[in-house]
Amino acid sequence: MSKANPPTSETLADEWLVVRCQLGERDAFDELVARWQLPLWRYARQLTGHDAASDDATQDVWLRVLRGIARLREGAKLRPWLFGIAHRVLMDRLREQYRMPLVSDDAADLEAIPIDESALQLEADLAALSDGLARLPAPACEVLTLFYLQQLSLDEVSQVLAVPVGTVKSRLHRARRLLRLQLDIQGER
């Protein structure tokens, strides 16, 4: 028999925010945005690669959250619920991009961002890692971002992506292998 994990203070705070939002407290929604804006924006930034696209996507996420918060039944599941909405918004946007013809006058968009040689070694490593992530297919980048950068559990990633936990594990394994290959190709490993 397995015991459920006891709720953390963050989970309890999220639950309370959800209840307050559902009761119509305007300040509660502002608190919710303040608490989750940056993590959602970083997730969107990692997948889109552009600040402006991340801003637009997170704005869409918040509109969907505002419209749907009343239907959220388990406040403890706020985190995977928010990232699930972000996942759907970003996948919708990716589908739209794939439908559009690829036209670009700016060759710099197609180039990798150069790593500043004068930066600290840690900054260089982070830039190389970010560049390697950007070169991965969207599903691989997404699963790594959710698990490692957003620190969602396997169960939460499973909920966000709407796939079984075993699929998340295999996607993580494949994505890590692809990232290692990218870093080897760049000579960063």
Rank of each mutant, 00 (worst) to 15 (best):
D60F: 07
L152W: 02
L126N: 12
A127W: 14
R171F: 05
A4M: 09
M1W: 02
Q150M: 11
D92G: 12
A108L: 11
S153F: 07
T167G: 07
P114I: 12
S153K: 01
C141L: 04
R88W: 08
P39I: 05
P6L: 08
R20P: 13
R73G: 11
L183C: 02
A13E: 03
E25I: 14
D109H: 06
N5F: 09
G84C: 09
I69R: 10
S104H: 10
R99Y: 08
I185Y: 00
A175P: 05
Y43R: 01
L161S: 09
R26P: 07
Q151S: 03
L120T: 10
P101D: 09
S2G: 07
A28R: 01
D125T: 15
L183K: 01
Q22Y: 08
L102I: 15
R79L: 01
L40C: 12
L78R: 06
E74C: 01
R42V: 08
A76F: 10
P164I: 05
L32T: 05
L23Y: 14
V65F: 11
V19C: 02
D27N: 02
T11I: 07
R177T: 09
Q59C: 15
R73V: 14
L12Y: 15
T167M: 04
E156I: 02
V61R: 12
A57E: 01
G132F: 14
A112H: 05
E156M: 05
A128F: 07
D51Y: 11
I113S: 12
I85G: 06
P164Y: 02
V160I: 05
A140Q: 08
K77A: 07
S118C: 00
S158N: 07
D125W: 04
P114W: 07
E111F: 11
L82R: 08
A4Y: 09
A127G: 11
L149G: 03
S170M: 08
R176Y: 01
S153R: 04
I113V: 10
E188K: 07
D105E: 03
R135K: 13
P7S: 03
R135N: 13
T167K: 03
D27E: 09
A44V: 11
G187C: 12
P139H: 02
